[in-house]
Design a protein around this nucleic acid. Structure first.
Length: 255
DNA sequence: GACATTTGACCGAC
DNA sequence: GTCGGTCAAATGTC
């Protein structure tokens, strides 16, 4: 455990140093040539924090809920026009795929669409961050139930949250949101996932996740660790770096 | 009344 | 032309 701790400190310190270098770069006028350096540094930061977090959470599974992360380092898409009839479709953009038995992640999402997908039993639901208009958060999320009847969901996250990250009480918020969600229909066009039983299944998984996390100190999720790094006395010098404190977990992990 | 969800239409990529 | 992603009016919920 001591060795793991040391490795964690080393990787996090490396991440901090990379972030400071990135900060210095960003303070200058960034031209096209420097953008490549910025991208490289961001990747370096992501890897450092990711490996550090792997030490704390050796597997990405969370209490039996499969949770496989896949990173796609594609360049961000150009800014899209929001006006209907004149918008750019996102073709290549930062995204990651998570397979999970629960759709909750602590963030607040608003559903903006649903589509039946060719050769797929279940429709795909489209969510955007609730704070899109208030805080300009561009994070998107697509949820589709897997076809193997395992009640697992493929969740694709697109872009990063620029809104305030969920705090340590996020598990609580998930449960509260789920109770609110309970009275709503997940889908009306596809009875296979629109039943209240299906919603109840979501809720039970959410509640289970929350309750077990309290019982077994399962707060040790990447989001929690990140929050601790930023807000706790894990590393006082790190904490005192105001610039870094303003960066969310997703900003570092999934940039 | 405010906010969230549904759903058909619209649009771009292929 | 088809398919997947997004928009926005209509509708629902609190």
């Amino acid at each position: 455990m001591e060795i793991n701790k040391k490795k964690l400190v080393e990787t996090l310190i490396k991440g901090r140093n990379s972030a400071k270098r990135l900060q210095a770069l960003l303070h200058q006028k960034v031209n096209d040539d420097e953008l490549a350096s910025v991208d490289g540094l961001v990747n370096e930061i992501s890897e450092s924090f990711y490996h550090g977090l792997l030490v704390l959470t050796p597997t990405s599974t969370h209490l039996g809920l499969a949770c496989n992360l896949v990173f796609h380092g594609k360049p961000p898409a150009p800014a899209i026009k929001e006006r209907r009839g004149c918008y750019k479709r996102r073709k290549t953009i930062d995204s990651r795929i998570e397979v999970s038995g629960t759709i909750g992640d602590g963030y607040s999402w608003r559903k903006y669409g649903q589509k039946g997908i060719l050769n797929s039993k279940f429709p795909r639901c489209y969510f955007r961050c609730t704070h899109k208009h208030v805080q300009g958060c561009k994070a998107l999320k697509q949820v589709q139930q897997l076809e193997d009847d395992s009640n697992m969901f493929e969740i694709r996250y697109i872009g990063h949250h620029t809104c305030a990250p969920p705090n340590t009480s996020s598990h609580h918020r998930v449960v509260l949101d789920s109770k609110k969600f309970k009275n709503r229909h997940f889908s009306q066009s596809n009875p296979s996932i629109s039943t209240n039983n299906q919603n109840d299944a979501f809720l039970k998984q959410e509640d289970l996740c929350y309750n077990v996390s309290l019982a077994n100190d399962a707060q040790l999720t990447p989001a929690w660790v990140w929050n601790e790094i930023i807000t706790d006395d894990f590393d006082e010098s790190f904490k005192s770096d105001q610039t870094l404190s303003d960066i969310s977990f997703d900003d570092v992990m999934f940039s």
